Computed example of a mutant assay.
Amino acid sequence: MFEASSINSSTVEEKLFGHAGEDVDGDDGPVVFICGKCKLPVGDSLSWDGSEDGQNQIRLKRVTDNVLVGEDTRLYEASKKSLCLITDLFCQGCNSVLGMIYASTPKNLDHKRFAFCLNVADIDSYILGSANQMLAAEGPKEQPVTLEYRGIVEQQLTEMKMLVMSMAQRLEEIEAGL
């Protein structure tokens, strides 16, 4: 299993795009976003659409089938004089609210319309390639198990089996002569 970490939208954006003027760190892989409660994957950074630090949300163009779009639309006041119609997003695994979709927005919020807005407080993330636990090598003579290597081992086992059977037969002959 992987270890999940708590995230915020500015940290995610830094990981994905770096700071303006800085080189992006090539060591970080794509980010997988997971439900904060049941850890089902809900999206990834390849569908990144932006973030909203003021609302502590990230926007994705696409999400996994583990995200269910609610059936009820309701009014939401994003700010004064900014009424929107939204629909809640739910996790299929634990039915917790993950965020919302803006179905109708004023002109200044059009960039949010029909994007999946996930609440950073309700999701965690995992950076692909960040795992660092490995099995210790047995030594410098350790070889990977290939078909060729397997064939050699099987041949050696067959030869050893024949040798043991031959020795057992000779031992029986010696015991019979006594």
Rank of each mutant, 00 (worst) to 15 (best):
I127N: 04
P140F: 12
A131E: 11
E172P: 00
L118S: 01
E138R: 08
E138D: 05
A168M: 13
A176C: 06
A136L: 13
L109F: 05
I101E: 00
L157M: 11
E173Q: 14
D124P: 01
C117Y: 00
L135Y: 13
I152N: 03
N119L: 11
E159D: 15
F116E: 00
S125P: 01
L157A: 12
I101N: 00
A121D: 14
K161D: 14
S166A: 12
A103M: 10
I127W: 04
A131L: 05
Y102W: 03
T158H: 13
I101C: 03
I123P: 00
T146G: 03
P106T: 01
C117P: 00
G151C: 04
R113T: 08
T105Y: 01
T105V: 11
C117H: 01
A121E: 11
D122P: 02
K107Q: 04
Q143I: 05
Y149D: 02
P106W: 04
G177L: 07
I152L: 08
A115F: 05
M165Q: 15
A103D: 10
H111G: 02
V145D: 04
V145E: 04
E154R: 13
I101Q: 02
E142C: 04
A121F: 12
M100G: 02
R113W: 04
R150P: 01
L109C: 02
E159C: 09
T146W: 04
M165C: 10
S166N: 14
Y149H: 15
E138V: 05
A137F: 10
